[in-house]
Design a protein around this nucleic acid. Structure first.
Lengths: 212, 212
DNA sequence: CTACTTATAGACTCTCGCGTATACAAGAGA
DNA sequence: TCTCTTGTATACGCGAGAGTCTATAAGTAG
């Protein structure tokens, strides 16, 4: 505000640009549409993963992407549209990496691979999006499927009732917690990590049923 | 501007009330300050627990409390002030109910009692407030203490390093997940619930260390 | 009865952030 | 060289929601 272009307000034809001309030889990186779009999605994922949808402004995202807010609207219709795109891509990557498995032995290694490949997307999905009423539907299919699989597996040992429901809710949530904690701990030794998490899940399952 | 209070400004004495006079014999419940304040905190806890701070408007809270928005300002300076009061009270209740225990045998029963006594506050604290940068500090002392205790207990069996940190992060988070899942399942059998959760925590701890 | 407190109702201002529009610069390909 | 695309910079419209104010009513205590 202090250095506003004042004085000759009526003839602002080329005057305004003289300031930037001498300033910096900024390369002004140009990208083609698809490339830029992906870069925006990357930046938006990072920005949203810090504080969720409501607490993240378009200015934050633009700054993260090192772009103008106007550019965001050349690629996405609205903030909600951008967020959905971010979430969709994260879901897609997750599905690709895990490969629609049925919670068999190599489900946890796949989950770790997916989380390591896109940590921000992973955290965004399960730490924020899962709690946001307007967008929960995007990942509800995933969480519902997990709960369903857990429910089916546990039904062999736990009689139907609130305790079965409790365990079927808890085990997927715990698995995600364990993966996120692993991300937060710096992603040490993916192989042993999978073993430990699998063992922990097994321990929870053992504790979940009445047990003789 | 269109319906400015003009014309008969001096004689709007009883005209406006004639409408309400025949409408309903609304008791217009009156409370004394402290009482009303608690009731507002109850309502705000419920409202915030549905969608978190940002997504909850003062109108939502006023509606939940069956009050006018103006009344909220007679008891709290701002929305943030109200939220802090809600969180503070929930923290206080939690501390009272658990009694600053050191994760010994009866820590989990105490946690279940606390959660059952104030389910909305419990969910609000650990499902939303823990993720909100502006307010996380209010419960950080609690989470930090839990992690500290877990860290100390686990250090006897797990060598220092990322795996110890991972386990110390994971076990408190898992315990809270288990309690919330128990709330969501309808709070069946508090006694056995504590046993199952304790057993599950034990299972996770067993899996967390390299183990012979 | 009088005065105080608790309450309603609704209009008003102000700020913030989404979304739009315009003018201009410059790299890339024809 | 001419043009299309990508990009900057900036200003403005607009709605939603926070926070304020006034007028009025009615329980309650002295």
């Amino acid at each position: 505000m202090t250095s506003s272009p004042d004085g000759d307000t009526s003839q602002t034809t080329a005057e305004t640009t003289t300031v930037g001309a001498s300033a910096s030889p900024v390369p002004v990186r140009r990208m083609r549409r698809a490339e830029r779009r992906e870069q925006i999605l990357d930046a938006a994922t990072r920005a949203f993963a810090r504080a969720g949808y409501a607490a993240t402004g378009l200015d934050d995202i633009a700054a993260e992407a090192e772009l103008t807010r106007a550019m965001l609207y050349r690629h996405f219709d609205s903030k909600a549209d951008l967020y959905r795109a971010v979430l969709d891509r994260a879901c897609l990557r997750l599905a690709d990496a895990t490969g629609a498995d049925d919670f068999d032995e190599h489900a946890i290694p796949a989950l770790l691979r997916a989380a390591a490949a896109d940590p921000d997307g992973f955290r965004l999905l399960f730490r924020y999006a899962a709690r946001e009423p307007d967008f929960r539907d995007l990942i509800d299919s995933i969480t519902a499927a997990s709960r369903e699989v857990a429910h089916r597996n546990l039904a062999r040992r736990i009689p139907a009732g609130p305790w079965l429901d409790w365990a079927a809710d808890l085990i997927p949530a715990f698995t995600l917690d364990a993966v996120i904690a692993w991300l937060d701990a710096g992603q040490p030794d993916p192989g042993p990590a999978a073993d430990r998490i699998a063992a922990a899940v097994h321990g929870v399952m053992a504790a979940a049923h009445p047990h003789p």
